[in-house]
């Protein structure tokens, strides 16, 4: 007997096209966060609730357009009565929950997560992380100090991978947030060019069998660059400007426009520095494209610069 015979049979399709089900009315779930009462539709996460209340919770591996993977653990909050801290990005609201987004336990936990990341990863180009380190008093050096080694965060340093003209990969900066893998896979691109290889401390992002990008399945959509929170994946123009010490985001003009290439008409956010386009992104809150572009929209701006 085969499993498709006995275990995977879905109910038979209805004879007629069924009437449209009534619009679901979301049940509202009451809870308290930092002493403030809030009602959220069932199924929302603690992070959604915090956003409603304008409470900032730091995140690293979470992005509204991707499935939460629960890897980084910086978003933890304290749920009253629970033994362990809960990740705000994926824990769903429950009626009567009492949540604290800041407490000594939470702060300590975030601090140590940042320290552990900082102890093995170069976080220098991760937007917002330096501020976060200061806020939580994280000192990654304390591990190295104990080992009596002067080098700060070099334990996983490796040369930047430059194997194509469009973007570089510097895995010495990678925090293993899985966002690029998700964006390349089931959450957006469905190309599956990159995946996690190895296990435990040796887990790392890799193309198939570690081949250079041009030999892999990559189609250069750059959607992985768009979601990377650390600058481990970086478009070549930005990388080169940074190398030359000429990357000045504060001077850049940022303009939304429509991609000139095809009829889909994705929104492009064009970053211009010194009369040159230096980077193209796309807004995540666009209902249709959710921050994703293709190779033309993302990288095809050279002709403008000429």
């Amino acid at each position: 007997m085969r499993p498709d015979e006995i275990s995977f049979r879905l109910p038979p399709p209805a004879a007629a096209i069924p009437a449209r089900p009534p619009e679901p009315v979301p049940t509202m779930v009451p809870l308290t966060i930092d002493g403030r009462a809030v009602e959220m539709p069932a199924g929302s996460t603690l992070l959604d609730a915090c956003k409603t209340l304008d409470i900032t919770v730091p995140t690293l591996c979470y992005l509204e357009t991707l499935t939460p993977v629960n890897a980084c653990r910086v978003c933890v909050v304290e749920v009253e009565g629970a033994r362990v801290l809960a990740p705000a990005c994926s824990r769903q609201v429950e009626s009567g929950m009492v949540v604290k987004t800041r407490s000594p336990r939470v702060d300590l936990s975030r601090k140590v997560v940042l320290e552990l990341l900082g102890s093995s990863v170069d976080l220098s180009t991760a937007p917002g992380l330096a501020e976060m380190m200061v806020e939580y008093g994280a000192r990654p050096e304390r591990f190295q100090e104990s080992l009596g080694s002067a080098s700060s965060v070099s334990s996983v340093a490796q040369p930047v991978k430059i194997d194509n003209d469009l973007y570089v990969r510097d895995y010495g900066k990678c925090v293993l947030c899985y966002k690029c893998v998700e964006a390349c896979g089931t959450d957006a691109q469905h190309t599956f060019a990159i995946a996690v290889a190895g296990r435990g401390f040796h887990a790392h992002i890799s193309t198939e069998l570690d081949v250079p990008l041009p030999d892999s399945a990559c189609v250069y959509c750059g959607n992985c660059i768009a979601v990377c929170p650390t600058g481990a994946l970086m478009a070549t123009p930005e990388f080169e400007l940074r190398q030359a010490g000429a990357w000045r985001p504060e001077t850049q003009a940022v303009t939304d426009t429509i991609c000139p290439y095809c009829g889909v008409g994705c929104t492009l956010t064009v970053h211009v520095q010194d009369q040159q386009i230096v980077k193209v992104t796309s807004p995540f809150d666009n209902d249709v494209t959710r921050g994703n572009l293709c190779v033309k929209g993302r990288f095809g701006f050279e002709y403008v610069n000429k």
């Binding site: 997560v113 102890s119 996690v196 435990g200 887990a203």
Partner: peptide, 24 residues
């Protein structure tokens, strides 16, 4: 350290540090 799956930060990095310190 050998068996950690490496998905979440505290365990992936933490088991490595624990082992490193014990080893020393």
């Amino acid at each position: 350290r050998h068996e950690s799956c490496g998905k979440c930060t505290p365990c992936r990095e933490g088991t490595d540090w624990l082992y490193r310190i014990l080893h020393r």
